[in-house]
């Protein structure tokens, strides 16, 4: 038992207690939480900071406004409903198209047909706070449904794969691609059964995957190998993520990005308590990278510089770091 703890310590694995006490409580002042917990506010701040985000179709924040839902989605084939204060992907419904057979019915990313009334009930639940972290009143966002890049088609079962980047004091220190599976119902959330694939920070290439707590080489539904995919716009993704410090003022934050077929990388949401499974996906601990950033931290670095330093510092497999100018090229 102690041997196992020692091995994790040597690998620089960050535990939940350490994450809570040393990173979240020290670097994430509670007064800034609404900036990430309230997705309406996040979207506004991100737009101001120059991040690309999915277009907002409408917000429903009163039970009385639930009936406006039909009006908001009128003429739209696909959209996403999500609670403004939800966490961990709970309460999110992805609508990919309207049902061709039944009127006022929609098809979810998982292929289930839902009626307008059912969606309105779901929105009503959201507004009454069922998915809210505080349990209080909430709002439902209806926004653009990302048309995902065919790059990940082979390793996704419906839904939209997304890219989670952990940003420590403004430096992106670790990343993974989250791939929806049949059991995750098209959602890119690891605890709902999605596969996480580690990413080489220097190249943007995927590494092996993790399902639950186990390492997997292939996608469980499609059977396609997970490793070796190159994420496009990798520089832009890292630079956008690095801006999370300026947007949220949180020192330890998870940034979720998606790649739209037409619009490129979009920032979906941010998380002040990002999970730790990303370490399994990358096969390496966060604590070591946190310590490295503390060594080289420079408050004068701008987001672009910070992204470049991360690419240089955190090459996969702890292989010899690439020369800085080679990365820039």
């Amino acid at each position: 038992m102690l041997g196992a703890a020692k091995r994790l310590r040597n690998a620089g694995v960050l535990g939940l207690n350490e994450r809570n006490a040393e990173l979240i409580m020290r670097l994430n002042p509670r007064r800034f939480y609404p900036r990430v917990d309230d997705k309406v506010l996040t979207k506004k701040l991100a737009i101001d900071a120059g991040m690309a985000v999915p277009q907002l179709f409408g917000v429903i924040d009163h039970q009385g406004d639930v009936s406006k839902f039909a009006q908001i989605v009128d003429g739209r084939e696909s959209f996403v409903i999500k609670p403004a204060q939800g966490s961990g992907g709970d309460g999110i419904i992805v609508i990919v198209s309207r049902s061709k057979r039944r009127r006022d019915s929609f098809r979810t990313a998982g292929g289930v047909i839902v009626s307008e009334a059912e969606l309105e009930h779901h929105i009503s639940n959201i507004v009454s706070g069922q998915y809210s972290l505080s349990g209080g009143k909430d709002a439902a966002l209806i926004e653009y449904c990302v048309q995902f890049d065919p790059l990940f088609e082979q390793v996704s079962y419906q839904g939209v794969p997304d890219i989670r980047v952990i940003v420590y004091r403004g430096y992106p220190i670790m990343a993974m691609v989250r791939l929806p599976t049949r059991s995750s119902d098209g959602k890119a959330n690891l605890h709902q059964g999605a596969v996480g694939a580690g990413v080489d920070m220097s190249t943007g290439m995927t590494l092996k995957g993790v399902l639950g707590i186990d390492v997997v080489e292939e996608h469980p539904d499609t059977g396609a190998p997970i490793a070796g995919l190159r994420i496009p716009h990798w520089d832009f993704i890292l630079q956008s993520s690095a801006r999370a410090l300026e947007v949220t003022e949180l020192g330890y934050v998870g940034v979720d990005m998606v790649i739209d077929r037409n619009l490129g990388p979009l920032m979906l949401e941010m998380n002040a308590r990002p999970g730790l499974n990303i370490q399994i996906a990358n096969g390496v601990g966060l604590a070591g990278r946190v310590a490295r950033i503390d060594e080289i931290y420079n408050s004068a670095d701008d987001p672009v510089t910070r992204a470049r330093i991360s690419r240089h510092e955190f090459a996969a497999e702890r292989q010899e770091s690439l020369p800085l100018d080679e990365v820039a090229a």
Partner: peptide, 20 residues
Amino acid sequence: LGRYTGYRFTELGRFKAIGR
């Protein structure tokens, strides 16, 4: 214990794939 930043017992199993 409020400042205990070591691993939780269940994490030893959860992260067993790392560092091996």
